[in-house]
């Protein structure tokens, strides 16, 4: 594959930025900081997709980049920001493991994915190989974040970080069809579920749940 050294280096640099943001997500304690870091990761992902669109000469990947930029870096963080404020849980900090151990586990997962991916992709193009190792690391870090967090908002962010890794893998696989459709499907999944579960839940929290609490309380007294 004829790619110049510079495009190769830059692709890795952007991929590594996505991975670094994945690490940052592991140790953020405040929910707003988690959301900001996630937005940063999404911007890096958008850059990665745009760069791949450029070097692979695959214009449809620009659509993926735009989706990442508009939906993941803007709409979702804003919506979750609003949600956190409404629920009044800005100050909550929930981790199941200490940050030190979480980071160690994260490093272990990155090592694992490099050890796993590089040998099995010996025949693939170098660009794909290393991007794939980066992408798999991002996926595993997202998974780790989902495990170590208890709060629903940070779990969603963990899931979307995992998904960022998946999209990174898909855009790095040269000529993979349907990447755009897949990223749209993911966005719809997240958006609809957030809408379906969270927003109704909030409405109920303000309208009816108080009443409900009252009723249960009375029932318990009898």
């Amino acid at each position: 594959m004829a790619i110049s050294q510079i495009s190769y280096e830059l692709a890795h640099l952007i991929g590594a930025t996505v991975l670094m943001a994945g690490f940052q997500l592991l140790y953020q304690r405040r929910l707003f900081a988690v959301l900001n870091t996630f937005a940063f990761q999404a911007v890096a992902l958008a850059a990665a997709a745009a760069w791949q669109a450029h070097i692979q000469d695959a214009p449809h990947l620009y659509v993926t980049a735009v989706i990442a930029l508009v939906f993941k870096a803007m709409i979702v963080p804003f919506a979750l920001h609003w949600l956190v404020e409404k629920l009044g849980i800005q100050r909550s900090v929930e981790t199941a493991m200490s940050i030190g151990w979480t980071m160690m586990a994260g490093v272990g997962l990155v090592a694992l994915s490099i050890l796993l991916v590089l040998p099995v992709t010996a025949n693939a193009a170098a660009l794909t190989r290393e991007s794939l190792a980066l992408a798999m690391s991002v996926v595993l870090l997202g998974l780790l974040m989902m495990i170590t967090r208890r709060n629903a908002v940070s779990q969603v962010v963990g899931f979307m970080a995992l998904e960022n890794g998946l999209i990174l893998a898909a855009v790095s696989a040269k000529g993979m069809p349907l990447v755009v459709e897949i990223s749209i499907a993911f966005s719809v999944l997240v958006a609809m579920t957030l809408f379906g579960i969270f927003f109704f839940r909030i409405r109920e929290r303000f309208d009816t749940l108080d009443l409900h609490d009252l009723e249960t309380w009375r029932g318990d007294r009898q």
Binding site: T121, N123, A124, T128, L132, A135, M136, V139, L143, M146, F159, L162, E163, G165, L166, A169, A170, A173, K174, G175, M176, I182, L189, T193
Partner: peptide, 20 residues
């Protein structure tokens, strides 16, 4: 969602295995 996310990663890997 995590499950199907991992399935997508597997699907991408199958594509890479098939690509040559």
């Amino acid at each position: 969602s995590v499950g199907i996310g991992l399935a997508l990663f597997g699907t991408t890997l199958v594509y890479l295995a098939a690509q040559p």
